[in-house]
Design a protein around this nucleic acid. Structure first.
Lengths: 146, 146
DNA sequence: CGTAGATGTTTGACGTCATCAAGTAATGCG
DNA sequence: CGCATTACTTGATGACGTCAAACATCTACG
């Protein structure tokens, strides 16, 4: 057992620790994105684009107004990282697709999250598995909105 | 053992899961803040104010430009959630202090993070301790920036 | 079929967050 | 004193975020 068992933490302590890790990872992500001339929001959008996605779906994923997505995609399109394509079956929708350059940029951003990578490297295989299991149990409850 | 041991996850999987949890918690926080008429940034500032803090220190904590803090504190002060106080020993600095109302509001925001609280409640004492231990090991590496 | 209502996207107005550059005031040290 | 440093503010500018309104297209129902 490489994970020692500390005293049972307060829910508040756990919450605070979770928040700290979350913001640290976010900072790491934002810094890596900035390194490539992207805002964190732009990088976040790019990160969602595994396949073509309608504007509306993007807005839903980002939990923001659809009109907001217009501007973000405009700027990404201006840099050639993304393309709008007409949808075959519904002429109202425009599908957003990452260009080759866009895919490459987001790949590098992920690669360059040094701090996060380094931290994860300190965990052995067994601890990683344990952490993964615990977080996986947390996830569904946290994504259920009110 | 209530935590089953899953297959060893990829570093990428773990990273993605961590990101998902982080954004879910952030959404929860932002929603609770909005419920009290605060932007997430304002709530974040309020959350830092355990004691009096100079503007500059606040900017350092938020990892942003000092000029940015001016506006945020202006708006919080406008709502009576925060006060600027002259520093006794250095007349250049202004210490930001949460008012009673400010403390009350941030207390409620923390209370109302339903999703996060609910998710944490699904973990037993032992699992909480394990998670806490693992995250605590991750934290220092993630906060060391490049 | 044909129109009424729902849906996807964009535009415009507006407020907040973020940066940078410049200005003012106070500190501190030679 | 003089001069660099530090703390805070102001003003310009851009990205994000919301809402309301316009527009085209789809869908359902009579």
């Amino acid at each position: 057992m490489s994970a020692t068992t500390p005293e049972t933490p307060t829910k508040l302590q756990l919450l605070e620790l979770l928040a700290a890790i979350g913001t640290a990872q976010w900072r790491d992500f934002a810094a890596a994105a900035a390194h490539h001339g992207l805002t964190s929001t732009q990088a976040k959008v790019l990160a969602q684009l595994n396949g073509p996605l309608p504007m509306r779906a993007l807005a839903t994923l980002l939990v923001c107004d659809a009109s907001n997505v217009t501007g973000i995609v405009d700027r990404l399109e201006g840099r050639g990282l993304v393309r709008r394509e007409a949808d075959a079956s519904d002429r109202r929708v425009k599908n957003v697709v990452a260009t080759d350059e866009g895919r490459e940029v987001i790949r590098r951003v992920r690669e360059e999250m040094q701090a996060t990578h380094g931290a994860l490297d300190t965990l052995g295989a067994e601890d990683s598995a344990t952490l993964y299991g615990l977080l996986a149990r947390l996830r569904p409850g946290m994504e259920n909105n009110a």
